[in-house]
Amino acid sequence: MKHLIDIKELSKDEIKELIEVAKDIMQSPEKYSEKCKHKKLATLFFEPSTRTRLSFEAAMLELGGSVLGFSEAGSSSTAKGESVSDTIQVVGCYSDIIVMRHPKEGAPFVASLKSSVPIINAGDGGHNHPTQTLTDLLTIACEKKRFDHLTIGICGDLKFGRTVHSLVTAMARYAGIKFVFISPEELKMPEYIKEEILQKNKIEYVETNDLEKYMGDLDILYMTRVQKERFFNEEDYIRLKDYFILNRSKLEKAKKDLCIMHPLPRVNEIATEVDDDPRACYFKQARYGKYIRMALILKLLEIK
């Protein structure tokens, strides 16, 4: 039984295969419109995440399947004290594949140990969110046409942002990757990512708190939200937040084919004036998310 709990479980070949399928779906969606006929996808969202849930539901519906599930723990039997293992064994009786988001880290892994159907982790606390990473990878594949020899700037909350940790882990496997980490001192990339991923794979990286300094070198700029609650005091937040807002003037030195990404939701870290710039890829990224999830559902259900 195949599950997807952590992006590290997928080999480079498996990622390539998923991306090929996703591209084929984009090109000929009609070929796939009945691939999952009579199959059911259960979305178990123990904490709300509307866009991820809708993305999975849209993916399954476009494959001709149907969806069932809940969007918050209050409406599930967890509220009565049922364990994750029990919930998953029951839901496995009613569905062919399960998508699960849970506030507790490791909950989807626990589910996968007992499940009779494939489990997809749609986010477990601050831990993993592999389908966001797959979305990012499909975006890079479509917009940059390669995974190697890229300089990737990542800006914002690098300390707590699980999407950036997974992206760094996934991209560290390709040749010629360089990273530019742009963040306030308080939100720098954690040491264990630098030691266990970057140094181990001999990946070049620089750290800076200046968004414009390396702008001209970047092939990809991955923006994330700097959240107010991460700061010790409001004064620091007010002092620092504007450094990490991308606007048109900060893009002056950027390459013409820069790809600007963001996992969304955005608050104010990308000025809306950037949205019309052809280099802004974040809404396309959301669309790619649906296609890669379609490819993943097919893979886990072993449907060709």
């Binding site: 364990s83 994750v84 507790k104 880290e105 626990v110 606390g125």
Partner: peptide
């Protein structure tokens, strides 16, 4: 000790640690 870990709420789970380095 992670309060966000699933083992903090599901008491029947074994606490398993894996050697990583």
């Amino acid at each position: 000790k992670n309060p966000r870990c699933i083992t903090s709420t599901e008491q029947d789970l074994k606490h398993v640690f894996v050697l990583t380095d």
